[in-house]
C-alpha cells in the first residue's frame, strides 16, 4: 500500500514577463488502487500538476510538498522519481530520432528494475503487451514516437505503463485524439494493468466518455490552479451537463 501526497502545492513558471504562479495551493492524496479523475478548463494547470509531480525542470515549486510514502519527491531527480514508482503518460510524447522503441523499452525497464530483463521473457512480455493494445509488432523497430499518429503515441505511452509497472500513474489526456475503438482498447488496457498491478491512478481528462470505461473513485474539478471541488463519479456527469461556468464566475 503506497501513498502519493500533494500538499499546498504552489508552482511558478518563468516567462519573459517574469515568473507567474500557475498552481496556487493544490492538495491531493492518492493511494494504491484508487482512481482519481481531474477535470478542468484549458489552461487551469492540470498538465502543470502532472509535470511538477514528474519533475519537469520548467516548473519551480515555491511552496508546499509532494511525498511518496513519506519520502520527499521534490528532492528527487526526474529519473529517481520514475524509479521510485511514478509514471507520467504525457499529453505530448516526444520524438527521439534514431532510438528504436525496443532499445528504449529495454533501457527503461533496465533502469527501473536495476537489472537487464532476461531476453526471452522480455521479448514475450513486450509482444503480449503490444497485442493487448492492438499495436503492430513492427513498432518495436521504429524510432520512439517518430512519425507515430496521435493515437499511436498514446498507445505507446500505455505500453510503457504496462511494462514499467509503476506504483502511481498519471495519465495526462491520454484519451484525447483517440478514436472510439482506440479509446476502448486503451481504457481496457489501463483497467487490466491496474487490476494486475494495483497502482494508484490520476487521470486528467476533458471527457466523461473515458470515465465510462475507467470508473473513478474520486473526481476533482481543477480551476485556476487549484482543486475547486471534489466528489464521486456523479460530479463528472454534472460537469458534462453544466460545464465550468459556476466555478469560473466566483
Amino acid at each position: 500500500m503506497a501513498t502519493l501526497q500533494v500538499k499546498n502545492l504552489h508552482v511558478t513558471v518563468e516567462t519573459e514577463q517574469g515568473s507567474i504562479e500557475i498552481l496556487k495551493g493544490v492538495d491531493l492524496t492518492i493511494r494504491s488502487g484508487e482512481s482519481h479523475a481531474i477535470m478542468g478548463p484549458n489552461g487551469s494547470g492540470k498538465s502543470t500538476l502532472a509535470y511538477t509531480i514528474a519533475g519537469h525542470p520548467k516548473y519551480t515549486v515555491t511552496e508546499g510538498e509532494i511525498t511518496l510514502d513519506g519520502e520527499n519527491v521534490l528532492e528527487m531527480s526526474v529519473d529517481e522519481r520514475a524509479r521510485a514508482g511514478l509514471f507520467l503518460a504525457m499529453q505530448y510524447p516526444v520524438e527521439i530520432p534514431g532510438v528504436s522503441v525496443s532499445n528504449f523499452l529495454r533501457t527503461a525497464k533496465t533502469a527501473i528494475t536495476g537489472e537487464a530483463p532476461a531476453i526471452r521473457t522480455w521479448i514475450n512480455e513486450v509482444r503480449e503487451a503490444m497485442t493487448n493494445l492492438k499495436m503492430d509488432a513492427g513498432f518495436t523497430e521504429r524510432n520512439v514516437n517518430e512519425g507515430f499518429s496521435g493515437g499511436e503515441k498514446k498507445r505507446h505511452e500505455i505500453l510503457q505503463l504496462e511494462l514499467l509497472k509503476p506504483k502511481f500513474a498519471i495519465l495526462d489526456e491520454t484519451d484525447s485524439g483517440l478514436d472510439v475503438d482506440a479509446l476502448r482498447v486503451v481504457s481496457e488496457g489501463v483497467n487490466r494493468i491496474k487490476d494486475a498491478n494495483g497502482f494508484g491512478l490520476l487521470l486528467i481528462t476533458h471527457y466523461t466518455r473515458i470515465l465510462n470505461y475507467i470508473k473513478p473513485d474520486f473526481v476533482h474539478v481543477f480551476v485556476a490552479g487549484k482543486i475547486a471541488e471534489q466528489g464521486g463519479p456523479e460530479l463528472a456527469e454534472r460537469l458534462e451537463a453544466e460545464g465550468y461556468d459556476r466555478y469560473l464566475k466566483v
Binding site: D79, R83, L88
Partner: peptide, 11 residues
C-alpha cells in the same frame, strides 16, 4: 527528449 527519457527512469 532528455525529460522524456528520464521520466522513464533512465539517468
Amino acid at each position: 527528449q532528455l525529460f522524456y527519457l528520464q521520466a522513464r527512469g533512465i539517468n
